[in-house]
Design a protein around this nucleic acid. Structure first.
Lengths: 215, 215, 215, 215
DNA sequence: GATGAATGAGGATTCATTCAT
DNA sequence: GATGAATGAATCCTCATTCAT
């Protein structure tokens, strides 16, 4: 057998759960893994704990996952794509409100996943997983970039900024919201940050016009 | 040298090395710790490896540090403050070049430290250390904020943005440079990012004026 | 069986063994611990040895005991009270034979426990355990004292001796039998020591009378 | 070199200290060893601590002793023989006062040595040392036995007791004084125990006569 | 399928002893 | 002689993984 046999993203499941009870157990394990990874960190959580938190025996864990790394991968697979932002139609929205709402939603999703707290640790130790994450980030980045390019074609974004850099900046700032809220403490910062992001994208006069359009 | 000179934040060392050879060993251990933490991750590195990488016996490690956590703390203490940005005089510099240079320096420092790759992992598991880091970040944030406030008094920054949010954004974007360079691959992105940051701070006409002043 | 039945003095076990096989392993570990403590001394025995002597893996030891100290405590708990002497009815027994038999039994019990050889070492290093042992000794002392007091009320013991001191002396001499047999080598010394003890308790004429009563 | 080269009692000294400074250091080490053995137990004390308590470097310890075992042996050699009781002249003393005084002195010596607290631990792990101690005890036992035999020739001890057992009992009870004082707390128990011991030796009428002789 | 007891390699740490200064 | 830093074998304990029930 090749050492690389599980180089598809998540590897083969020890068994493909087809029945309802099985699926429930697998879900319980995923959820317990997520909760414990967030609470105590990836490294500090072991398979036994995940199993017992999910109300199953240690051995059962290994029926559904080869190890906690695979469970982690499944979590990521399930959820990373949920972070893709929607494609906005700039002429229909108030960009500041739009970004503020987006940031809040993004923050809530990040918080629900919670994984952003453990990811950095994992990326270092698990290059395969790092790739999965990088891929997801590239998608997000690309999605933002496309929006910006569309907007530029409409002549509504700064002409002198590198859109790739701008979209990357938006992504980074969005990702760091949880940290900002922790560091600065103010729960209503979304609109402030939304304003900052809008400045990166729209010249003030354009922004004013867009707001008027909306109303 | 006073016996108490480094009894601050990190607690007492198992032994305060007084002799030159000792200091060399301690330094070798610190450097090995740094290198291995960066290379393999904090969790994946153990005291034995650090010692052997530094060319000393396992026991010697414990002569100088109570455990690898303390070594980590020492690394941070030694180096976090080196990340403080200088206080700029906006009327004397071309802001874009200034930021580009700053970003490049910051990137090089981060890379030299390398610790940014292991920090996230640690912050989760070690609240005491998290505090040290948060403190350092607050200092950096504050330093940037002060610069911006001075600039605002000179009427040279956007009047409608929250400076706290702007300075936080600058810090976050700076910190993520290593990641950007990895993700996007382009080593000459500093000026692009510098432009983006300048847009957050200076209205375009002000910026043009500042550039002229410089010349 | 109640889950709480042995949560007394020794604290909770890492796991309360419920199954028969488990109980067997736990017992095997206890027995191995006892044997090795006696053979090599407490300090000289480690968990790995106890486990391998019991035919289980090191980790299994830690499933049943937090450390060897707890195993020691369990041994003591199980067995100290077995050393309590029976309450004699002086008018029904030949005191010399009674004591001789008692001494022999006590000796055999001590030998079976074997712990008397390691106890002194432990008492110094483990005050909690020292308390357990002191408590047991106090019970034994008290039991002897009660017997003597009853006998004195019947007017059959020396009137001029301090009964507390006498009962303490009996306890001490009994405890040292193993040492005496080692030092002096004579296995049939029980009756000699019994005579000595009888002299501490009964005036010769009373003793003669008691012997007659018996016959 | 033979593995048995130090089978004389204490082994060869790494160096025979002839000079005053050396002798002082050696004494300081012995005293520190004694103090720490008593305070923390033999096993719990290490060479480094003994050295530092004596105000010398670790290496110096090994100049004077091959290891802490040898230091222990030296302590015993120096002091065990001090425990030999004096030869009494029964016709000249009040036996009860004599024994009471003897017990008190013995107790004080034991306490000064303090070693009785660590001996049991050692005897088990170090048969060579056990022999040294057994030898010393035999001497003490013999000394008491001789006294008793002399007394018996004068017809002043019980005729029906085994003198060997009686002398052994006296030794054991004497050795346990520290424990009795701890267990029972009464510092003035010497005379009570002296009475008990006298009962083992002298018939009451003889004792009365001896007391009269004294006066 | 499910269980959870058992495994044992591996990490963290200590300390008796040596030896360069 | 004296020093104390350095050594590394040995110990304690954990936990990912297996497997008999």
């Amino acid at each position: 057998m090749s050492e690389h046999e599980d180089e598809q993203l998540v590897g083969e499941y020890p068994s493909l759960p087809k029945q309802k009870r099985s699926q429930q157990k697998r879900d319980a394990l995923l959820e317990s893994g997520r909760a414990l990874f967030i609470e105590k960190g990836y490294e500090q959580t072991n398979a036994k704990e995940i199993a017992s938190h999910a109300g199953v025996a240690t051995g059962t864990f290994y029926r559904y996952f080869t190890d906690k790394r695979q469970l982690m991968m499944s979590l990521l697979e399930d959820q990373l794509e949920k972070l893709l932002p929607p494609e906005p139609n700039w002429t229909n929205v108030d960009p500041e409100s739009f970004f503020a709402t987006l940031l809040e939603q993004h923050y809530k999703r990040l918080n629900r996943l919670g994984l952003h707290r453990v990811l950095p640790e994992l990326l270092l130790k698990d290059p395969q997983l790092a790739e999965v994450v990088a891929e997801a980030r590239k998608k997000i980045h690309a999605r933002i970039l496309v929006s910006l390019k569309n907007a530029r074609e409409q002549g509504i974004v700064w002409a002198d900024l590198d859109l790739d850099t701008v979209s990357w900046s938006i992504m980074v700032l969005s990702d760091k919201i949880p940290e900002k809220l922790t560091e600065c403490g103010n729960q209503a910062d979304y609109s402030k940050l939304a304003k900052v992001i809008c400045r990166l994208v729209f010249p003030p006069d354009v922004l004013k016009q867009l707001k008027l359009n909306k109303k």
